[in-house]
């Protein structure tokens, strides 16, 4: 029962590569995180003009928020590739990304709350960006719920890709309607990103943390995709001849 077409052999070829890369990615992510945290905690002033020590939550908060958004974009990208080329591996990538993306969005909501409490005095205050992240979490949960509700992998891949496409079109509209509920004063959308003015040390530490989260995501997604490949290809001969399956 050999599968010889290229697009059907992709999972078999990708499996060992993912296995080799994953541990290195996670290890590298750990190293980068340590460097980032050291830089962020030891090389930066304790108290900023408007923020006290709690501002150091920024490293994990902003990094996880970005990851939450970036991974959703990756998910949509792989879903699109899946629809166009009908290759099973790209659907598997989309399926593998969703849980990690949801985890980062959830993490960014909680770290936002931990930061909001000391600086704004409330755990949650429906600030447009926080609300958008909450809705992004709902989109992730909807995506994963649809995928787990459908048993046949073929239909679940295609159905969740259609949902991802709908998400792609709707996310800007949702983001805009949340950020600018009252069209009169719509300044909220044009708030300048606060990246430039902050102390370069903080900014560099944050970029290192973002890089560390990126590499961590790659590693974890590789691990999850191996599980998905094993689960979906358990009938094929190449899986049954794998040494770890004897």
């Amino acid at each position: 029962m050999r599968i010889n077409w290229f697009k059907y052999a992709a999972p078999a070829n990708f499996y060992p590569i993912a296995g080799a890369l994953a541990p290195w990615f996670i290890a590298l992510a750990g190293v980068l995180a340590i460097i980032g945290l050291y830089w962020g905690f030891f090389q930066t002033p304790d108290i900023l003009t408007d923020q006290k020590q709690y501002y150091r939550i920024i490293f994990v908060h902003v990094a996880s928020a970005w990851m939450g958004m970036w991974l959703y974009a990756m998910l949509v990208l792989w879903a699109l590739i899946g629809i166009i080329f009908n290759t099973r591996l790209s659907y598997m990538f989309a399926a593998a990304i969703a849980p990690t993306g949801a985890m980062f969005t959830f993490l960014s909501l909680w770290t936002g709350a931990f930061w909001g409490e000391p600086s704004w005095g409330t755990w949650w205050d429906w600030d447009p960006r926080m609300t958008s992240m909450l809705i992004l979490l709902f989109l992730y949960i909807g995506y994963m719920a649809l995928q787990s509700a459908i048993d046949d992998p073929r239909r679940s891949d295609k159905a969740s890709s259609v949902l991802a496409m709908v998400g792609l079109v709707m996310v800007p509209v949702i983001y805009w309607s949340v950020n600018c509920p009252n069209p009169a004063e719509c300044a909220a959308l044009h708030q300048s990103s606060s990246m430039e003015q902050i102390d370069p040390n903080i900014r560099n530490a944050m970029f290192i943390m973002v890089a560390s989260f990126w590499i961590y995501s790659f590693g974890v997604i590789m691990l999850r995709i191996r599980n998905i490949i094993l689960e979906r290809e358990k009938q094929t001969r190449w899986v049954q001849e794998l040494k770890e399956c004897q």
């Binding site: 709902f138 909807g142 309607s177 509920p181």
Partner: peptide, 21 residues
């Protein structure tokens, strides 16, 4: 799908937000 009713609301509520706002 089994549990279709709940699943539908899970998928659609985020999409309904702009209409609600």
């Amino acid at each position: 799908l089994r549990g279709g009713g709940v699943l539908i609301s899970l998928l659609l509520l985020p999409l309904y937000i702009p209409v609600l706002i």
